[in-house]
Simulated assay, not measured.
Amino acid sequence: MINVIIGTKAELIKMSPVMRELQKRKVEYNYIDTSQHSQTTSKFRKDFQVKEPDAQIGGEKNITTLMQGAGWAVKTAARLFDLKVLKEKKGLSLVIGDTATTFLGAYCSKAQGLKVGHIEAGLRSFNYLHPFPEELIRLWVSKVSDYMFAPYAWAFNNLEKYPGKRFNTRYNTILDTIRYSLKKNRKPKGLPKKYCMITTHRFETIFNRKRLEKILGFVEQAAEQVPAVFVMHEPTRKRLIKYKLLSRVEKNENISIAPLMHYFEWIQAEKNAEFMMIDGGSIQEESYYINTPCCLLRNATERREGLGENVLISGLDGKKISGFLENYKSLKRKPIKAKFSPSSFIVGKILEMEKEWS
């Protein structure tokens, strides 16, 4: 039996085309939701046409604080070990990315004798602290994975020293999700005619007042040029309140604070934006596939999508960001014309190897 273990919004977004492909081929699988972002994922499942979880082992609220995360991790590990489907000693567990769910899903599956398949394998920043703890999770999961699905050649080559079988899927599965989402043509409401998109939520950003305040300065600089839509995550809002910085954003007439959007609306908003200033790796990938100029508010990235084309790693360097704001219209790349589906490729390979894991 195949087990699909996910828990965050990003994991569902990227794994949903794989799950739909399994359903399309009438392949049975167990969907295990660790409830890291349960409030959000519960709303998305119907829209992404994936089934309800066979096992939901967390709570009903999104994890938004470190204390909540610590308690959730301990409970989730215990419940994963107790799941009957993970005690069968045969089967394959699929995990994706670099989250706490990725680590716990791989660890608990491997400890109980199951094979592990890691989707989006081989990404590296080569810096243990940026991003933290994601880089450590990626390294460890590569060591224990039996099957590693890398999104492109650079990531594939990073996996050469590991014992598991490796495959180059050519693109990230998020490409299939973007194609699916754009077909829905669900346009967000209330956005200016011309705007830039802002969002920041990473641990190393929001838990560092000096860094977050510096980023706000760059956001204000961008908003002087193009009206800014700041899509705000709840943890970001809480830290801005704690640091007494939220009012600074609210009082700026050129910045509009927006709640998190449905993914179909978010993709349309990204597509139509003048540019984006973000700190998320998945959004970097999205910007590449939809060809929107993107300023990455980080020192390093584990992803290669868009670098040297439509994506700039700013390093929070004022000169680089000023240069981006002056020249963003020139940051475009050639569109992807291939109809190749990475999700279909992954499922095909899994079924080819069924005798190894069943």
Score class of each variant (00 low, 15 high):
Leu66Ser: 14
Arg209Cys: 08
Val74Glu: 13
Glu52Gly: 08
Lys143Met: 15
Thr173Ile: 07
Thr292Phe: 00
Ile96Trp: 11
Ser282Trp: 09
Tyr147Phe: 15
Ala10Pro: 04
Leu191Phe: 13
Gly58Gln: 07
Ala100Asn: 13
Pro192Phe: 07
Trp357Asn: 02
Glu265Phe: 03
Thr177Tyr: 00
Pro235Met: 04
Gln39Arg: 14
Ser344Leu: 02
Tyr152Glu: 14
Asn299Leu: 12
Asp146Trp: 05
Gly306Phe: 05
Arg138Met: 06
Lys143Gln: 15
Ser343Lys: 00
Lys187Glu: 12
Arg237Thr: 09
Cys294Asn: 04
Lys339Trp: 03
Phe207Trp: 14
Thr64Pro: 03
Glu224Arg: 15
Tyr31Glu: 05
Ser282Gly: 13
Lys9Pro: 09
Lys339Ala: 14
Lys89Asp: 13
Ile178Ser: 00
Glu60Phe: 11
Ile350Met: 11
His118Ser: 02
Lys210Glu: 15
Ala77Ile: 08
Ile283Arg: 00
Tyr171Lys: 01
Ala228His: 01
Asn172Pro: 06
Asn62Ala: 07
Glu88Met: 13
Thr177Met: 03
Glu302Tyr: 11
Glu274Tyr: 06
Arg237Pro: 04
Lys187Trp: 10
Asp279Arg: 04
Leu212Pro: 01
Glu52Trp: 09
Leu66Ala: 15
Gly190Ile: 12
Leu246Ser: 07
Leu80Arg: 03
